[in-house]
């Protein structure tokens, strides 16, 4: 399973859910799989995608919020998982694509190739709803459940390293305005 395949499989399941994509390949692949106004593309603030998702989920309890994150980025901000667990937003779904590499910076290995288990770390942080998937069918089942049942959810998808050539336009203000308009007022 590649990240692009997984995101393509996920998009038709989302309905009007908001998606926050982590900088680099998550943003590229989300854009390539399907640009939509409810996508918020991040270009920086490495490690912060899950926290942006948390703030949005708390501000908008009736909105499902899906975060597309990477192992290298989340390893930079592990405390955020404890904050998510403490706040318990039922509408937040953290999707962690673990490819074992800092792919955007040249494919250097992350510590998930050396023993770090992000699903176990999420559980240890206090997140009770944790699912793992390593094929498309398992991933789709986990996403369907995470979009339906109360969270917060942590869905770890093991994916191959796969070079992505898609590039979303780097227009932060336009992305912001379009996203706010799309999800509407609180």
């Amino acid at each position: 399973m590649t990240r692009l395949e997984a995101i393509r499989r996920m998009l038709p399941l989302l309905g009007g859910a908001a998606v926050i994509s982590n900088l680099g390949r998550n943003t590229y692949d989300l854009y390539a799989a399907g640009d939509r106004p409810q996508n918020f593309y991040m270009w920086g603030a490495m490690g912060c995608a899950v926290s942006v998702g948390l703030g949005l989920a708390l501000a908008r309890p009736a909105l499902r919020v899906v975060v597309l994150d990477g192992d290298g980025s989340l390893l930079m901000n592990l405390g955020a998982l404890a904050t998510v667990a403490a706040c318990r937003p039922p509408n937040l779904v953290e999707v962690l694509f673990d490819n074992g590499a800092y792919e955007t910076t040249g494919g250097q290995p992350t510590h998930t190739t050396r023993g770090a288990d992000l699903a176990a770390i999420a559980r240890g942080a206090g997140i009770e709803r944790v699912a793992t998937a390593s094929d498309l069918e398992g991933f789709a089942r986990a996403i369907e459940r995470a979009l339906r049942d109360e969270g917060p959810w942590f869905v770890l998808a093991r994916v191959e390293q796969a070079t992505s050539f898609a590039r979303a336009p780097r227009r932060p203000i336009s992305v912001r305005d379009r996203f706010i308009d799309a999800i509407g007022p609180a």
Binding site: F40, G47, V52, A59, R60, T83
Partner: peptide, 22 residues
């Protein structure tokens, strides 16, 4: 009120809150 483990998290939480209208 969100108690964060690190200040950078707090900036991101408020960025997300603002996107949601708070």
């Amino acid at each position: 009120v969100v108690s964060c483990t690190r200040e950078e998290e707090g900036v991101a939480v408020l960025a997300g809150g603002y996107l949601g209208g708070q």
